[in-house]
Computed example of a mutant assay.
Amino acid sequence: MNAPAPAPIRLVNLTLGYDRRPAVHHLEGEIAPGAGLAVCGPNGAGKSTLLKALAGLLAPLGGSIERGGASPRNVAYLPQIVDIDSAFPINLRDFVAMGAMTRIGLFGGLDAAERARVAEAIETVGLSGFEERALDTLSGGQMQRALFARLIVQDQSVILLDEPFGAIDEATIDDLLALISRWRAEGRTVVAVLHDFDIARRAFPQTLLLARERIAWGDTRDALCKANLARARAMSAAFDESARECLRDEETRHVH
């Protein structure tokens, strides 16, 4: 695979939300090229919202995401499996081949090189022999493997994963973590929303602990210490869902 070289992703005073109601406040930080970053935090902490913004699917309420000239088109995004319609009438091979659309277009045909790429991706995730199977006949673990195969075909420098290990077997988790390790060895940036702190500690050197705002961002074992986790729970519990978009103290001094 020959993905474009990744650039740093900088979050500058980033505020995200819906209907002008903030879900993530004034986030600052940098995701280095080739980073393996886990995004952890309580339910409702803004983790999936942040991933959607990184994928270019959600515009900031305030601040910015600086990509060093790169486009969100250079991002491969895997939403939560509950957001994917596995009943869509398509077989596994064609589903995986959808990862090539950014190169061939919506109605482009697969040439020999793209067909070989699809076959290799299916083999890599351990689904050889399942090419003609309909999506709705796959188990949870098989479906997740198929989604990772589609990411392989996308061949992007930044890979965003939203809860990629929920409700799947340990063997599948091990195989997918090995694939993530390979991606990072190739210099790709991987950002994953995780509820499982053990997986974060095992496979992601860096963690952003989020509770509507940054609690900690750095070495995973330090970020997920007991004190930080307690603070994250307290911050999340105290958050006012009805709050409007806010301004930083230094910004309010210029508002009359």
Rank of each mutant, 00 (worst) to 15 (best):
L51S: 02
A76N: 08
L54S: 06
G62I: 14
L54C: 00
T49F: 00
L78W: 08
S71R: 07
K47T: 05
K47E: 05
L61S: 08
A53T: 02
G63Y: 08
G63A: 02
S64I: 06
N74R: 14
A76M: 14
A59L: 08
N74Q: 15
L78P: 04
T49Y: 00
A70R: 12
A53M: 04
T49N: 00
S48R: 02
L50P: 11
A76V: 14
R73D: 10
A70E: 13
S71F: 01
G69E: 06
N74G: 14
S48I: 08
A70D: 12
A70V: 13
A53R: 05
S64E: 14
L54A: 04
A76F: 11
R67K: 08
E66I: 15
A59S: 11
G46F: 03
Y77E: 12
G69W: 04
K52G: 11
I65K: 03
A76W: 02
L61M: 14
G63W: 00
G63P: 07
L51T: 04
G56H: 09
N74E: 15
L57M: 10
G56C: 13
T49Q: 01
S64F: 10
V75I: 12
A70L: 15
R67V: 06
K47L: 03
L51A: 11
G68W: 03
K52Y: 12
G62F: 01
Y77K: 15
A55I: 02
K52E: 06
R67D: 01
K52D: 03
L54R: 07
R67A: 12
T49P: 04
E66K: 13
G46A: 04
L50Y: 07
L50I: 02
A53L: 03
L58T: 02
E66D: 15
P72L: 00
L61C: 11
K47W: 00
A76K: 12
L78I: 10
S48K: 03
A55R: 02
A53W: 07
R67H: 04
G68C: 14
G56S: 11
S64V: 10
S64Q: 14
G68T: 15
T49W: 00
Y77S: 12
R67F: 06
V75Y: 12
S71V: 09
S48Y: 05
G62W: 09
A59E: 08
P72Y: 06
Y77R: 11
L51F: 01
A76L: 14
L50N: 06
G56P: 12
L58D: 03
A76D: 11
E66F: 14
P72W: 00
L50C: 10
S48C: 02
A76I: 14
G63M: 04
S71I: 04
G69V: 05
K47R: 02
V75H: 13
G46S: 01
S48L: 01
G68N: 05
I65A: 08
Y77M: 13
S64P: 02
P72E: 02
S64M: 06
L50H: 10
A55Y: 05
A55N: 06
L51R: 04
E66A: 15
A55H: 05
G46E: 01
E66V: 14
R67Y: 05
L78Y: 06
L78G: 04
L51C: 04
L51I: 07
R73P: 09
G63C: 03
E66M: 15
R73A: 12
V75D: 04
G62D: 13
A70I: 12
